[in-house]
């Protein structure tokens, strides 16, 4: 696995590439000055499962604190899951051997939200983009540089940019550089953590279109973390809606937007801003705020804010049900 060509086995479009199984991430909360005692756990991610298929885009939407960023971090091996596993092409990543980890590292890359923090200000563009190759591939400097130039070209920048430093670029251009770096290893998955929300409106469309074009060219699967339902609709093939550390609804994108079923998903869609002043929207204003993940409510986590809550919702945790092909949700209404 040392050259550009052989770095990636071809995976058929639609085959399951990455699988999260019952992932949990609990952060201990400690108390006490000298002898600290664990007094509870913040259940940042509480038993979620999903699949990511080759060449497709899975969107993870939710409000702040719903666990979507922690999920992204676990997928990037920046956090160890408390329980559960991540399978990459069938191999367990966190419990597998060094070989599995290494191949995972070079196959899963990331683009983050803040283009001002994601590029080392002291490195030249060519070194930033080449870094993943320097670490993972055994190729010559000349090969690296010619690939850097190709990547720059692919993300819509010029060759002369390779000698500049990051501060010489605007936000949108910096996000292009971050994308070029993420593509350097020909990865099979890129985790996109809010890739456009820090950018100006007129630049967002450039970057989203670029990401779509590159997906087709590089045959890469995306896992898109976002809070904006419209962005998710434009970019994704599958959507998982998260609330308080759980996936409450998971569905192919068309199905979800035509037939949103979980009361939380419906509320989220009604709260989203309209695209036109005459857009008719069902007005569901959720009362209160998201409860603390330190002490989630019993039963269904959403029941204290749910407009359709029933008696059993406060006692019994709902099971996962499939209501249409690929469309699953956790709710007692179904």
């Amino acid at each position: 696995m040392t050259t550009i060509e052989s770095s990636q086995e071809t995976f058929e479009q639609g085959q399951v590439l990455l699988e999260a199984k019952n992932l949990k991430k609990y952060f201990p909360v400690t108390k006490g000055l000298l002898i600290s005692k664990v007094t509870g756990h913040i259940k940042a991610v509480d038993d979620i499962s999903f699949e990511l298929r080759a060449g497709e885009t899975l969107g993870i939407v939710g409000e702040s604190g719903c666990g979507k960023s922690t999920t992204a971090k676990m997928m990037l091996m920046l956090e160890e899951p408390t329980e559960g596993s991540i399978l990459f092409k069938g191999d367990d990543v966190h419990h597998g051997g060094a070989g599995v980890r290494k191949s995972y590292r070079s196959s899963v890359q990331a683009v983050f939200q803040d283009p001002w923090s994601s590029l080392n200000p002291r490195m030249r563009v060519k070194d930033i983009i080449a870094e993943p190759m320097v670490i993972n591939w055994n190729i010559t400097k000349a090969e690296q540089q010619s690939r850097v130039l190709k990547l720059l070209n692919d993300v819509g920048l010029n060759e002369y940019h390779s000698n500049l430093f990051p501060h010489e670029f605007s936000g949108g251009q910096r996000q292009r550089l971050a994308i070029a770096r993420a593509l350097a290893l020909n990865p099979s998955v890129i985790v996109l953590d809010e890739p456009v929300s820090a950018l100006d409106v007129s630049i967002r469309a450039q970057i989203m279109n670029l990401l779509k074009d590159l997906q087709a060219e590089y045959k890469v699967a995306y896992m898109l973390i976002a809070h904006d339902l419209a962005t998710v609709r434009y970019m994704c093939t599958w959507v998982a809606v998260m609330y308080l550390g759980q996936v409450v609804e998971l569905s192919p994108v068309q199905e979800l937007y035509n037939n949103p079923s979980h009361p939380y998903t419906k509320a989220l869609m009604s709260a989203a801003l309209p695209s036109h002043p005459d857009t008719e929207q069902e007005e569901i204003i959720l009362q209160g705020e998201v409860p603390s993940p330190l002490n989630p409510p019993p039963g269904c986590y959403f029941h204290p804010r749910c407009p359709d809550a029933m008696d059993r919702c406060s006692v019994e945790r709902p099971e996962v049900k499939e209501i249409a092909e690929g469309h699953t949700l956790n709710c007692h209404l179904f």
Binding site: L76, M77, L78, K102, R105, S106, V108, Q109, A110, F112, Q113, D114, S117, S118, L119, N120, P121, R122, M123, I128, E131, P132, I135, N136, A178, R181, L185
Partner: peptide
């Protein structure tokens, strides 16, 4: 906590590399 440090980890950079290439120069 800078994102470029996380990204270096994601690319598989060793701790020594992160410390000397990404952190120390800063």
């Amino acid at each position: 906590h800078m994102d470029y440090v996380s990204l270096a980890k994601v690319s598989g950079a060793s701790t020594a590399r992160i410390l000397f290439i990404h952190i120390f120069p800063g």
